[in-house]
Simulated scan of single mutants.
Amino acid sequence: MKKFIGISILVLLAGFSEVNAQSTASKVGTDVKDGAVKVGNKTAEVASNGKSAVIDKVYKDMEGPNGETIYIDKHSKYYWIDKKGHKVSIAKNKLIAKK
């Protein structure tokens, strides 16, 4: 009887550790995915900023609402680059003078 109880407890513990290992693997997979998304967004932002700095003019006297660098394209439109590398248009009256 003692062997039966001992074996059943051992089986239960082994079952719990397997479930815990699966949840840990799932969490690691989610962390890796989140990290990859962050790296991709930062790469897109840096690439867009580099392209804009070469192709378009930088508006040196003004900045965006949160201190962003403002670019002027060939159609005289003002924009800045967000955290995901997208161009965000902005009206001239919403620009802030640099200090």
Rank of each mutant, 00 (worst) to 15 (best):
A47I: 08
L95S: 01
G15T: 06
E18D: 06
E45I: 00
K74L: 04
I81C: 08
A14E: 00
A25Q: 13
K74T: 08
K83H: 05
S48Y: 00
D82P: 00
K27N: 11
K98M: 07
D82S: 03
A53L: 07
M1E: 06
S8Y: 01
L13A: 14
A25F: 02
G6D: 11
G67F: 05
H86V: 01
A36V: 11
D82I: 00
A44V: 04
D73M: 05
V32K: 09
I55W: 05
D31R: 12
V39S: 06
I81K: 09
V28I: 15
S52F: 04
T43N: 08
T30S: 12
K27H: 12
E68A: 01
V46W: 05
G15N: 08
A47N: 13
H86S: 13
D34G: 03
K60Q: 14
I81R: 10
S23Y: 06
T69M: 11
D73N: 15
K99L: 15
K3V: 06
D34S: 14
K84F: 01
T30Q: 15
K33S: 01
A53F: 07
K99T: 14
A21M: 10
H86F: 12
I72W: 02
K57C: 08
V37I: 15
N20Q: 14
K98R: 15
A91S: 13
A21I: 04
N49T: 07
K2F: 08
G15M: 09
S23R: 14
V39K: 05
V28Q: 11
D73W: 10
K83Y: 06
T43Y: 00
H86L: 11
K98I: 10
V54R: 14
S23F: 04
I96E: 09
V28H: 06
K51C: 03
L13S: 05
G15P: 05
K51R: 10
K51H: 09
N20F: 09
L13D: 02
K74C: 01
W80S: 11
S76K: 14
I9H: 07
S23Q: 12
E68H: 02
K87I: 00
A91Y: 05
E63Y: 01
A97E: 15
V39G: 02
N20W: 06
D73V: 14
Q22Y: 03
G67Y: 03
G67H: 03
K3N: 07
V37N: 05
D73T: 12
V88P: 06
K27C: 01
M62I: 02
S76N: 14
G67M: 09
T43G: 00
V37W: 04
L10C: 11
S89E: 13
V46P: 00
K99D: 15
T69F: 10
V58S: 04
I5S: 06
Q22H: 06
K42M: 03
A14L: 11
G85I: 12
S89R: 03
K77R: 13
V58C: 04
A25I: 03
E45A: 14
V54T: 09
